[in-house]
Design a protein around this nucleic acid. Structure first.
Lengths: 353, 353
DNA sequence: ATTTATTTCGTGTACGTACACGAAATATTT
DNA sequence: AAATATTTCGTGTACGTACACGAAATAAAT
């Protein structure tokens, strides 16, 4: 018996109303050719009239197109294992969505080599991905790259650091200012009276320096906002080797006997921990990021607090946001700040990245 | 020609390896009966071995089951149109997902009638929904209800206010404490010297009072945290009628000539605006929520600031989170705080709920 | 040993869309 | 007008899963 022709839906209904086959409707929907202008218009009209919304689940299922998401993050470098965490997050997301015909193409650049970044962006673009996740370390170059993405209609999300001006789908990562602010709050509890703070910005990479400055700004503004007078000594160290760092620290500490706490504005805090240990200086040490080297120093009592922002989650969410947006057409929050976690010797075991 | 038997996937692959049909695999997957213990075990083993993950898109497409999401929110009441906004959000989400065989069943209760809440929870449970969105206005009753949901394995999300202890999928809404804190910050810019603040908690409903108190707590703690001395006069008004409110306000204002700013801890601020207008008192007025009555007062200059947290978005996100979780098995953030927006006469036109 | 009841399983169709293939209709050339 | 080229369109199969139906195999009853 012929099926009762109740409520058709989707392409079929359009096809029926337009007296054409679903094949034709399909061609109109995808702007493929092979349909006469007049039926095309007719079908388009009906599509509009019905306010047709495709069933995205069915679409993805039927499509043989593989969706490509490109990721562009730093190589895991010798001086910190930080970027292995986002990478794990990326792979976790990949595992979850690859069965929906989504492929994740991973590109890596050398944090110390601007050219490698540029060449990787080129590679990325050549593959015409459907979406990009990137850590926009080199600002100008990232802007150039994402401008091209804008032109090509490729959505992209930033992780780890942000370039607000760009037309990104989302930024997922820390609120740098806030995390500095939080540290200041911590500091205000820990220090008393005239005890001073040393802020250490360690970065060989000039382009990343503004990150550190944002944290420092948050840090300083806490004291300003709360009208707390606090001596803040500060050094920028542009050389990564232990020796230079040690020298600088020794010097500043001998000049400022009142320093009781050191705040390192990035993950290089473990290097400072080593120095202080060597110098036999027991100061309170605060830094960033849940990486192996830091955890080790934490457990050994050489670091007191680590501020973390789930780098794995950041990358995972980044991929998933792209997936949601590309495949399911979902709107995505333009900002997705990660919680600011405080890790100590007592709770680090329970921290899940 | 027979298809090349390359990489089968999903049920088909399992079926092949187990030497059974996909029908049998399907029965095992869904714990339906009609399969002998021994083949069941065999199939189960292979499923585990392959770490089979079903294609959720295909599953939803093929399933004829309609997924039911129940919503349980207050009726739009006479004294504030607030709840029409979340309702709009719910309907927007519904529109978006109904084509995936998801139905949203809306239940409403009277904010002044505990019994109506209870009876609506009963109704909800009778329908055995697959997920619930609710505003847990009556705490004890909400706990009882969600405990039953826990037993039945029904996920639920809270909007507007939270009961942290419960095992909810997510809370989506304002951080009450923070919004009070923010207002205090605003106040500290606006007021000078010895100018005082009046905090007004207007609620006929005792059970909602703790919300207001949380905001007040945040408000007060700002001054404490920042060591600012500020005279804070405060009244709780338990009667909703304009007359009682007017009387109370008149009284407190005549006793405290130094009050220059009034902070109303909920959406009833427009009532206060009317009173002040009638009394010809020009004070700075701050309150909550982007509802029609308030906007009117804002444009007329009778309210100075409105604090809003996109109630429509809250509900929309709530439904979508449930959908994601139920259909796509996505993990969901346990907390989804909404941004705290400050609305003035100048920017209200651009505010999208 | 039949017949009948019951369990166990395979097949077919459907979900809504994509896309390849080829048939029908139309246009162009001879 | 016939032959050919081109455009326009319909049909069929696939995606991975759900589920109804009925066939085959087994068990129970006569």
């Amino acid at each position: 018996m012929p099926k009762k022709e109740e409520q058709l839906s989707g392409v079929k209904e359009i096809a029926m109303r337009a007296n054409v086959s679903i094949g034709t409707v399909d061609r109109v929907l995808h702007n493929r050719n092979g349909v006469s202008p007049k039926t095309r218009e007719k079908v388009k009209a009906i599509i509009k009239e019905l306010d047709y919304q495709p069933n995205l689940l069915a679409r993805r299922l039927a499509s043989k197109k593989v969706i490509h998401i490109a990721t562009l993050i730093p190589l895991v470098s010798k001086d910190t294992s930080y970027w292995s965490l986002p990478l794990q997050g990326i792979m976790r997301a990949e595992e979850e969505i690859k069965r929906y015909n989504i492929e994740v193409d991973k590109y890596f650049f050398d944090q110390d080599d601007k050219d490698s970044f540029v060449s990787q962006t080129r590679k990325t673009l050549r593959k015409k991905p459907d979406g990009v996740l990137l850590s926009p370390d080199f600002i100008e170059e990232s802007v150039a790259f994402t401008n091209k993405c804008n032109q090509l209609g490729i959505p992209y999300v930033f992780i780890d650091s942000d370039i607000e001006a760009q037309n990104r789908l989302s930024y997922i990562g820390p609120d740098l200012y806030d995390s500095g602010y939080l540290v200041a709050n911590l500091v205000s509890y820990v220090l008393r009276g005239r005890e001073a703070v040393l802020v250490l910005n360690i970065s060989q990479r000039t382009y990343k320096h503004h990150h550190l400055l944002k944290k420092e700004e948050g840090f300083r503004n806490y004291f300003k906002d709360n009208a707390i007078r606090k001596k803040i000594e500060k050094i920028d160290i542009r050389k990564g080797d232990n020796l230079s760092i040690e020298k600088e620290i020794t010097s500043v500490l001998s000049r400022n006997k009142d320093i009781r706490l050191v705040f390192v504005t990035n993950s290089r805090v473990f290097i400072v921990a080593k120095c202080l240990k060597k110098l036999k200086k027991k100061l309170i040490l605060i830094g960033f990021d849940f990486i192996e080297e830091n955890i080790k120093a934490l457990t050994e009592g050489d670091i007191d607090f680590l501020i973390c922002q789930k780098p794995g989650e950041q990358a995972y969410k980044g991929i998933m946001s792209l997936y949601q947006h590309i495949v399911l057409n979902r709107q995505v929050d333009r900002m997705q700040f990660m919680p600011i976690d405080i890790i100590t010797k007592e709770n680090y075991q329970f921290y899940k990245n």
